[in-house]
């Protein structure tokens, strides 16, 4: 009730009522207080002398990383190829698992809402909550360092991403098209392939390519925990403080990511 009638009959327009005003201010106050408290917590754990030194450090860092060691690139082609493979094969693995999971999770295609759907949703949630780097940490312990752990890590993380977006797409399909296929006397599998798959195919392809693009980025750091790819070289170069190699690696990552983003945008454009 932003319009208030005063005792003398004059009407006063305000944006909010007094109580609303108070609540809004209180909300802001709470937010600011929370931020300040949190910042203090961080501040206590920070050695501020280092922070004030940061500009000099940054200058020093820049100094040492320019120019990049161009000839180091020759050692990077293979790790970069590995990185792309980790992303691509990981995405492929995720698609193989995520597609059926999505059908089990969507409420209009799940075989059982009470039993199967919660399990499928749990798989999706668990996969999404855990970062691919953490998956990689765990998998390196199990399978040892190398690309294999990286592919599995990317795959496990992407199941949740692809699965979630896909099951949402499945839930949004036009039910009458499915009804029409059922009315012809088609079997359950035929209804799936003729009634549902054509409707979600573009979304499916778009989601997959989108995730592949993200996975290229993610795959560049998996090497930090030993799960293969260019991150291994990055870790080593940082460890030996060879910043001109680090800058070379970063440039290569930049180029790869730009290309992958371009490819993914082109593919998505072509689908729609």
């Amino acid at each position: 009730m932003p319009v208030i009638t005063k005792a003398n009959g004059a009407r006063l327009w305000m944006r909010r009522s007094t109580a609303g005003d108070l609540a809004t201010w209180f909300g802001w106050l709470l937010g600011v207080a929370l931020t300040v408290v949190c910042f203090q917590f961080i501040s206590e754990q920070t050695i501020w002398a280092f922070v004030w030194d940061a500009p000099r450090q940054a200058g020093d860092l820049l100094d040492r990383s320019v120019p990049p060691r161009w000839d180091y690139a020759n050692e990077l082609w293979k790790p970069m190829w590995d990185t792309i493979n980790i992303a691509t094969l990981g995405t492929l693995l995720a698609v193989l698992i995520a597609a059926p999971t999505a059908f089990l999770a969507a409420h209009n295609t799940t075989p059982s809402r009470v039993l199967v759907r919660p399990i499928a949703l749990f798989v999706i949630v668990a996969s999404r909550s855990v970062n691919s780097l953490i998956w990689a940490l765990i998998l390196v312990i199990i399978f040892g360092p190398g690309m294999f752990a990286g592919i599995l890590a990317i795959g496990l993380r992407s199941i949740g991403f692809i699965g979630k977006l896909l099951y949402e797409a499945i839930e949004e399909i036009d039910p009458t098209q499915v009804e029409a296929v059922r009315a012809t006397g088609a079997s359950g599998a035929q209804v799936l392939v003729w009634g549902i798959v054509p409707q979600i195919a573009p979304a499916f392809a778009g989601i997959t390519v989108f995730r592949w693009d993200i996975n290229i980025r993610e795959a560049t750091v998996l090497g930090l925990v030993g799960a293969g790819g260019i991150g291994v070289q990055l870790e080593a170069s940082i460890g030996r403080l060879e910043w001109e190699q680090v800058s070379m690696i970063l440039l290569l990552i930049l180029a790869t990511v730009i290309v992958s983003e371009w490819v993914s945008a082109r593919v998505r454009h072509a689908i729609i």
Binding site: A180, A183, G185, W194, P198
Partner: peptide
């Protein structure tokens, strides 16, 4: 039931064609 449905053709309001085929 599926056998029986073959004997009944259905035509829909919004056509219900599979749009992308």
């Amino acid at each position: 039931l599926r056998r029986a449905r073959r004997r009944m053709g259905m035509i829909f309001q919004e056509y219900a064609l599979i749009e992308r085929l």
